[in-house]
Simulated scan of single mutants.
Amino acid sequence: MWKMRLPPAGDLNAQLNAALVHINGTVVYELSPEERQSIHDLYARYDEFYGEPHHTLNPEALNACRNALHDAYGQVQVSGRLSTMRARLLDAAPECPFCGAAPATTLDHHLPKDDYRSLSINPRNLIPSCQPCNRAKGTLEPVAGEGIIHTYFQTLPEETFLVAQTSYADGTLVVSFSVDEQVAPPPLSERLTFQIGRLKLDDRLAKSINTFLFELKPGLELLRDIPDPREFIKNHLLKAGVSFDRSFGLNHWKAAVVRGLAACDSFLDDPWSYLDNEAVFMAELDEEVLL
Rank of each mutant, 00 (worst) to 15 (best):
A104F: 07
P218I: 10
K254W: 03
W2F: 10
P112G: 12
A44K: 01
L57P: 01
E34R: 11
R198C: 06
L216D: 02
S129I: 11
E278G: 15
R45N: 13
H252C: 11
G100S: 06
E287W: 12
A14L: 13
E146V: 09
D115Q: 15
C264M: 00
R135W: 12
D245R: 07
D202M: 03
L223H: 07
A9N: 06
S176C: 03
I233N: 05
R224H: 09
F49I: 00
L62V: 04
L199M: 05
E146G: 02
L275P: 04
E278Y: 01
R259L: 05
K137L: 11
G138W: 06
S266K: 04
C65F: 01
A14D: 14
A144P: 04
G145T: 11
P94T: 03
L216S: 02
M4P: 00
D47Y: 02
S266I: 00
S176E: 14
W253E: 03
A64G: 01
R117E: 13
V183G: 06
L205P: 12
T105W: 08
E221Q: 12
A104M: 14
I196N: 08
L205S: 01
L16K: 10
C133S: 06
G80Q: 08
F49D: 02
E231V: 00
T166Q: 08
E287M: 12
T26S: 09
K137C: 11
P185W: 09
L285T: 15
E95V: 13
F232T: 05
V76Y: 10
V280T: 14
Q195S: 15
P103S: 10
D276T: 06
D270F: 02
T139R: 15
E288M: 13
N17L: 13
L90K: 09
M282T: 02
F281I: 05
F267T: 04
H236K: 08
L57D: 08
L275R: 02
L237W: 02
